[in-house]
Design a protein around this nucleic acid. Sequence first.
DNA 1: TATTGTTATACTCTATAACTATA
DNA 2: TATAGTTATAGAGTATAACAATA
Lengths: 129, 129
Amino acid sequence: MVGRFGRRLIAMEEPILAAHEISMWAYAVLTALRDRPMRTQAALASAIGADKTRLIPVLDDLQRRGLITREPDPADRRVRLLSLTSAGGKLHAAVQGDIRAAEEALLAHVAPEDRARFLAVLQALNEVR
Amino acid sequence: MVGRFGRRLIAMEEPILAAHEISMWAYAVLTALRDRPMRTQAALASAIGADKTRLIPVLDDLQRRGLITREPDPADRRVRLLSLTSAGGKLHAAVQGDIRAAEEALLAHVAPEDRARFLAVLQALNEVR
DNA sequence: TATTGTTATACTCTATAACTATA
DNA sequence: TATAGTTATAGAGTATAACAATA
C-alpha cells in the first residue's frame, strides 16, 4: 500500500516538476539549499541521500540556469560553497506551492481530524529507531 | 515522508526476501498467483504492474525451482497457464509471515487505535479517483 | 599522503523492437 | 493477419574506480 501510494505521489509530482523544467533531484537540491547553504557537495549529496557523482550534472545545470551559486571556498579551494540565488529561491517556492496544492487536493478526501493523525503517524514511523 | 517510509519498508523487506532467495518481482508473482491462477503471462504482468518481457526470467527461475507450473493451454497453445505449486504456496506463506512480523514490529511503535486509522486512511487514499 | 570534486566506466533495471510459434 | 511468448538490443539511472587539483 505504501509503495502504491508513493508511486501515485511521484506520478502526481512529475508533471509539476516538468512544467518548471526541473528534475526530482534538482528539486531536492533546491530544498536542501533553501534550508541552509552547504559547504561541500559531498555534504549536500548525503543530506538528500544521493551519490556525489550523480549530483554533478544536476549542479551543472542549476548553476548554468543561475539558480544556485557554486564557488571555490577561498580558505580551501578544493571545496565548493553552495547556496541558492534569489531566482533559485523563487523557483523552489513556486514548485513547492504547486506540489502542496496537489497534496492538499488529495488529502481533501480524508476527514480533517484523520488527516492530522495520519501525518503524525507517518512522521512518527519515520523517526522510529 | 511517504517516499522515505517506502524506502525504509523496502530496506526492511530486502533481507527477508534474500533469506528466502527470492526477488521482489518473484514475490509479487507468487502473491498474484496465490490470489488466483492466470491464463496468460501478459495478464499476470499487468496485474502486478510489470512489463511482460521482464517477467520472463522471473518465471523461468520460479518454474525451474518448482514453485509454479507453466503449461501451454491445450485449447490455444500460444498461451501459458500459470499456477502455484504447493511448494510455491508454502514459500509464499513463509515469506509473507516474515514480512508481516517485521511490519507488526514497526507498527508496535504506534498506538493501536492510531494504527487502524492510519491503515484505513492509507487504503482510502489509494482508492481516490 | 589525504581530501574534494570530476570524469570514465560498468552495472542494473527497464523498455523497445525484432523474432518464433501458434491461431 | 493477428496474438502470446521469447530473445536481443538499447536506453535510463545508478554506483564504482580512476583521475586532477588542492591541502
